[in-house]
Write a protein that binds this DNA or RNA. Structure first.
Lengths: 141, 141
DNA sequence: TACCTGAGTATCGTATCACGATATAAACTC
DNA sequence: GAGTTTATATCGTGATACGATACTCAGGTA
């Protein structure tokens, strides 16, 4: 059922390339949409990571670094810029005085809602282009 | 069946964030893997776009710009850097004297094969994390 | 208390890279 | 063959992720 170790066929390369193209297309859509609303792609990802954080609607810098797959210092700078635009705020962490609680502002909430709706629609529109390839022993015709 | 226009629930935000996290994780894996082999992420994407080009194993700058979702001048610079490392070459276009045919070198082929195999394995490993969210009227329990 | 080690956050300088603006050459059209 | 479009290339700029470094606080040990 798995193809681990076997060399790739032309079809495999095309599948990998197709998937990468899907990702790039989605990110390109995201970038243009988001920029037309005055945000950078990273800022949108930050807002989304906050609102979409499991069980909560805020996160610490370290948690965000994990979710955004960035180094902590990069996240600090990202937060600084977003804060400068009034999208997020910092507050005291409930239990740890070293840590920071990053929150969405009213404005951040509002923009995020608009943008997220557009992203949901685009995802529905893209459909199978974004599906990761599946390798099976007997590929479908 | 579609949810277009409706406001997003907390669950929706989490689904969007989860998907974005999947993409970031995959790209992060890709970046580290690729860099450990002496390439930049963009260079890997370039090589993959060439080898994975439908029906062919080469492409023009413009075609690459489309597949990589970049401006043409960005692709030119990307090709320059990749060419400097001996990963790709330029050749005359078969029908259009303005255009350029970009090809993989032997070395480019070799590295791409190794990296692509690792990516295929990782995709199999990641499984559902990379699946785009699905919105249905009656979400599954 | 005093100390130590590690974790969380912040600052700064650097390097990369995608882009817009611009240029040149070939193709196409009339 | 003059004008328009398409394909590639060059150059300067801006944004940003990162490593190195520093500071504060938490948690443990004596």
């Amino acid at each position: 059922m798995t193809t681990e170790g076997e060399p790739l066929t032309k079809r495999d390369f095309e599948a990998l390339a197709r998937f990468r193209f899907g990702i790039r297309s989605y990110l390109r859509f995201s970038e243009e949409t988001v920029r037309s609303h005055g945000l950078t792609p990273q800022q949108y990802q930050l807002l989304l990571a906050l609102k979409g954080f499991p069980e909560r609607d805020w996160a610490s810098v370290r948690e965000l670094a994990d979710r955004l797959q960035l180094r902590h210092n990069s996240v600090v700078e990202l937060i600084n810029r977003a804060q400068g635009q009034g999208l997020v705020t910092r507050a005291a962490h409930p239990t740890d005085a070293r840590a920071v609680r990053v929150l969405l502002t009213k404005q951040g909430e509002k923009v995020l809602s608009q943008l997220s709706a557009l992203h949901r629609d685009e995802l529905q529109r893209m459909g199978s282009v974004l599906m990761p390839p599946v390798w099976s022993e007997f590929p479908p015709a």
